[in-house]
């Protein structure tokens, strides 16, 4: 006896075609979202440019992010800090007017967080910007990427070879590679970074 499943399959062909198209669409939709709306460089309430501040004007990072050297978090400058300069500088630009409206309304600027770590990770800026870390050649850019070239902050990660990879979020490898490279004391013990 010779039974063929081909006729049976043939009957399924339209369904397979629809399923295949659905799947293809899924991929396209996923890709489109990841490409055009990656969320790795969100639009901020004020178009603040690190390129102008840190790049062209060479303002040191810790002039504004003052907490970095003494706290776990680098800190975002208070509105008053921005106003401190901008009541004199470039006061007529639309973005600065926006800033001044926040200031006059005594409202904080709802900046959107770009670089984020999971809640189970303990990371302290203090230790990583200490004199010891700087001597080892670790700078803010080592993790945050070439911020001074960015108009809008974008998620950047660093590969083993030192090249920057845009839109790649931080993962544990980034920390571990660096800890290994610099032979950090107990740098690969889980409880050094996990909490």
């Amino acid at each position: 006896m010779n039974v063929s499943i081909v006729p049976g399959l043939r009957a399924l062909r339209p369904a397979a075609l629809v399923g295949g198209t659905l799947f293809l669409g899924l991929l396209v939709g996923y890709w489109a979202n990841a490409t055009w709306y990656p969320g790795t460089s969100p639009e901020q309430p004020i178009e603040f440019s690190h390129r102008i501040h840190a790049g062209e004007n060479e303002i040191p990072c810790m002039y504004c992010h003052t907490q970095a050297r003494r706290s776990i978090s680098a800190g975002v400058p208070s509105v008053s800090k921005c106003v401190g300069c901008h009541k004199e500088i470039a006061t007529e630009r639309p973005q600065i007017r926006k800033l001044m409206s926040y200031w006059q309304n005594e409202e904080p600027i709802p900046w959107i967080k770009v670089h984020d770590l999971p809640d189970f990770v303990h990371f302290t800026h203090k230790r990583h910007v200490s004199a010891y870390a700087r001597a080892a050649g670790i700078e803010c850019q080592t993790c945050h990427g070439p911020v001074e070239t960015m108009d809008r902050i974008r998620v950047t990660s660093r590969a083993i070879d030192g090249s920057f990879q845009l839109d790649t979020p931080w993962e544990m490898g980034l920390c571990l590679n660096c800890h290994r490279q610099h032979q950090v004391e107990h740098g690969t013990d889980c409880w050094t970074c996990h909490k």
Binding site: P118, F120, H186, D189, C190, W191, H194
Partner: peptide, 11 residues
Amino acid sequence: NQDGLNTQIYN
């Protein structure tokens, strides 16, 4: 771990 602690890594 090296401090004589019995660790628990949640993630």
